[in-house]
Design a binder for these strands. Structure first.
Lengths: 118, 118
DNA sequence: TTGCGTTATGTACATTCGCATATATTGATT
DNA sequence: AATCAATATATGCGAATGTACATAACGCAA
């Protein structure tokens, strides 16, 4: 299924977005790279932005989804907590479920769109 | 179901958003009021913004979703076309389907969030 | 002890987004 | 003919958003 047709799920916490497509991808990247800055580079965003997104996630949930450490071998790093992994897994599961539920209707929508000129 | 927990569906057309939550509500409002400016007032947005959103919708689909007329009794107006009504109905149906499909998981997510302080 | 890479945080600047405002056009009504 | 309300479109301004840059703290390794 094309990215274009995937439903966007947002977990709101007051005025903040606790989790959304971007934050989920970032969380994924932090888990894989073990570093906020590496994840930022991978996703093509500034370190500051990545850090702010992580900070928002950490503040919105019961407990931090990412734990970071300064200094040491490699300068430091970040790891996704148990809760973080659970949150991510649940989010991905929901994404899939929502996508499947509207898949056929989404495809039919394409017929109503204009002919693409790109 | 609270607004916060509703999946956001976006129909993309190249770089443009052909239809999303905001445009769907606007389309609804135009259908009810018979006017772009009345819909803009109702939704608390500028006429310009409403017009641009309508314009995007019209360009993205096979045929216009909204047809407008200038002058005349009342200065003019706008009506939602047959295609527009079909598009809106399909979109609402998908919204509902997606919402139902993740409803229980979304509720469980609430348990993972922090205690709200507002 | 010096160096390095990362976390953490502040500040300034660019870009985007939306609004307010202004103007022209239109066509039935008065 | 004059009026009126809405469409259609341009322009400038302010707010919000994100990047770039700067700086400090940190702790292991050379």
């Amino acid at each position: 299924m094309p990215e274009a047709l995937k439903p966007r799920l947002r977990i709101l916490f007051g005025t903040d977005i606790a989790l959304g497509p971007g934050k989920a991808d970032l969380l994924d990247s932090v888990a894989r790279t073990g570093s906020i800055s590496a994840a930022a580079r991978e996703m093509g965003m500034s370190y500051r932005r990545a850090w702010l997104l992580v900070d928002t996630m950490n503040r919105c949930f019961r407990a931090p989804l990412v734990e970071a450490s300064k200094g040491g071998a490699g300068g430091g790093g970040a790891r996704v907590t148990e809760l973080g992994l659970e949150v991510l897994a649940r989010y991905r599961a929901m994404e899939l479920k929502a996508a499947v539920s509207v898949a056929t209707e989404m495809r039919e929508f394409t017929r109503l769109l204009a002919a693409k000129q790109e």
